[in-house]
Design a protein around this nucleic acid. Structure first.
Lengths: 110, 110
DNA sequence: TAAATATATCAATTAATCATGATATATGGA
DNA sequence: TCCATATATCATGATTAATTGATATATTTA
């Protein structure tokens, strides 16, 4: 994860539909979701959804896998990890009390 | 942290100078940095830096504090925490092995 | 192989964002 | 109060991004 990758990722997440899509896929985890399923759930037209998924793919935030006629999308937790690592690099100037709560927050109860 | 806040934050982080600024401030931690100091370090003109700091402020990703003629900026770790919490909400569909590495990554060594 | 379904690409219009020069505001010191 | 320093705001031109209708590609089924 270099700076350019990080910029691409943040840009991808800074659009309403794409943020919704990514959060849906985070929730879905290893199950993933079909492209059409996502579009239907979010009430977004087919070509708009395709374009937005392409942006997320390009950013590496999601992966996909063809299954017959359909394509299943997954959140890419490795990219997520790299992105947060990049953002928090050498964080908090030696005071763990600043960054520890940030870490605790995403310690999900799954 | 609602969706609109998250979008504003990601948009703020999706621009080169602002990403640099935020990462500098993350490293600086509680020390923070003066506006002019940041601009000098990143070689960015005064008004451009001011505009970019305003975007980060508006997103709540940084706070500031006037000190005489100068203004000191700080990364806001609470906002950061809220943002990551929002993004990873109900994450990984019941498989902790997916999201645990994400958490470990940002467990900084400070 | 033809039709149906699922998804992607293209071209064009509209909208948002960025850096910049010029200028304004605020604070401190002479 | 006048000047210098530090930062913010404004107006503008240039670049970039988003949605959409139309169309293309890929896969399955008949």
């Amino acid at each position: 994860m270099d700076k350019s990758d990080a910029l691409t990722s943040f840009a991808a997440l800074s659009q309403s539909t794409r943020l919704d899509v990514f959060r849906l896929l985070v929730k879905a985890g290893a199950r993933g979701m079909l492209s059409g399923e996502i579009g239907e759930k979010l009430d977004v037209r087919q070509n708009t959804m395709s374009a937005n998924l392409a942006v997320l793919l390009n950013a590496g935030l999601v992966r996909n896998e063809r299954q017959g006629r359909t394509i299943r999308y997954f959140a890419d937790f490795d990219t997520m990890r790299g992105l947060l690592g990049f953002l928090m690099e050498d964080c908090c100037g030696g005071r763990p009390d600043l960054c520890q709560p940030v870490i605790d927050e995403i310690a999900c109860a799954c």
